[in-house]
Design a binder for these strands. Structure first.
Lengths: 228, 228
DNA sequence: AATCGTTTTCAATATCTTCTGAAACTTCTG
DNA sequence: CAGAAGTTTCAGAAGATATTGAAAACGATT
């Protein structure tokens, strides 16, 4: 498949494969720690580090996984919005390509996780609060004292409980607002903030000199950055 | 165990238990999505929502889990630094109490996850880079062309690979710097930022009127906020 | 130093998750 | 429209993780 011009080139190629494999393994391990299945993370890692579009069979072969597994993982990655389908003219296969800008990747992940995990949690918390602190809209025909405008004497334990619930709820909402504005549609938000606040660059270079230029806030490889 | 003064009080108490159970379940579900074992998350939820110190047997009974499981989960929570031991005079049992400030909780979690997952990943990435881009300190006695100052002609595929690696590495480092300054020792960082940037307050209140005051940036219950 | 109340450990077990592979399905092509 | 090429689905197998419970370790007390 790949033309190899010389022994030196062959050496490079072996190194490359080895480096890719290690990257895939590392990414897979990290994935499991964040609640993503190992294989799915590995497939993504392979697509990312490889840079070029791969088809199902490429993935199966490289990762030694079954067709079903490859198919499922790829579909899940599409749903996360961090991998996209690519078609090649004259080829009926589907190819898959990973988002190459790490910040875009990060934004997509945060957006999805918020949607999938934080939002439902917030909804549950509201429901729970309404168990002990029913909203004003509640019908209270059968409660004589409330009709008279007397509020039920508050159980201090219940009050404390509700404060804890509200604290949690308030926190989740702050997080949501922040992530929405930092991470979402319009938003190069966090990335811009990182640049402004001076968190980018310098760190690695100071510890370890590097041949290629230190990764800036725009972290796409040069090849993809033609039009800024 | 708990004195109940009246039927109304008994009703409140039942509601409270129900609300606690639901909170515990919701928190547990969320935990699993973030790579924390369900039980561990539930134990934490129980301690948080309960507010008061509980002993192993309390946890076992309330959550219907074995002694071993309770013990392990509690120890893990101690290691995460989000639960602390409490001793009562005249009682040989150990009691456990959860951090009540959600921002402190959040900081602890971010700190630990960075330490446990991101740092090792970063280390792996460095190693991987050194596979194909060995540092200047490398001995190259056996490579005539390098002795002559000629650099090996760079395989473009390898170069692109290294750029992707560096992009990832740069991203992780930016995240680490940000989390370090936002989240760490000194730092009420993120919390302060949220306040300044106007992400706190307003949101929930506008959608759902609440009896207790809207949770502010300082999210501890009143009972713990005596000395600011 | 023996006892007692408590906590920790860990091998066996139960539970949950992920993966496989073959069949069903879909979509192109001649 | 029949057949080929490619993709998805899903029941069962394999593998990973969490849980139990009983025994060991601990440490305060008599």
């Amino acid at each position: 498949m790949r033309e190899i011009g010389s022994d030196a080139m062959a050496g490079d190629h072996k190194q490359l494969i080895e480096a890719q494999d290690r990257f895939v393994a590392a990414w897979g391990k990290m994935g499991t720690a964040w609640g993503i299945s190992r294989t799915m993370a590995e497939v993504h890692a392979l697509l990312y580090i490889t840079g070029e579009p791969l088809c199902t069979d490429d993935v199966m072969e490289r990762l030694q996984i079954s067709r079903g597994n490859a198919s499922m993982s790829l579909r899940a990655l599409l749903e996360w919005g961090i991998v996209e389908r690519v078609h090649r003219r004259g080829d009926r296969k589907e190819y898959f390509q990973a988002e190459q800008d790490v910040w875009v990747l990060f934004r997509a992940i945060v957006r999805e996780r918020m949607k999938r995990e934080v939002d439902p949690m917030r909804a549950s918390l509201y429901e729970i609060r309404d168990l002990t602190q029913p909203g004003r809209s509640e019908r209270s025909d059968d409660r004589a004292d409330e009709r008279r405008g007397e509020r039920k004497p508050p159980d201090p334990a219940l009050a404390a409980h509700n404060q804890r619930l509200d604290a949690m709820l308030g926190f989740l909402e702050t997080m949501e607002k922040m992530s929405a504005s930092f991470v979402s549609p319009a938003g190069r938000g966090l990335q811009a903030a990182a640049k402004i606040l001076g968190f980018v660059g310098g760190g690695r270079a100071e510890a370890r000199p590097s041949t290629s230029r230190s990764a800036e806030t725009d972290s796409r490889p040069d090849s993809e950055r033609e039009a800024g």
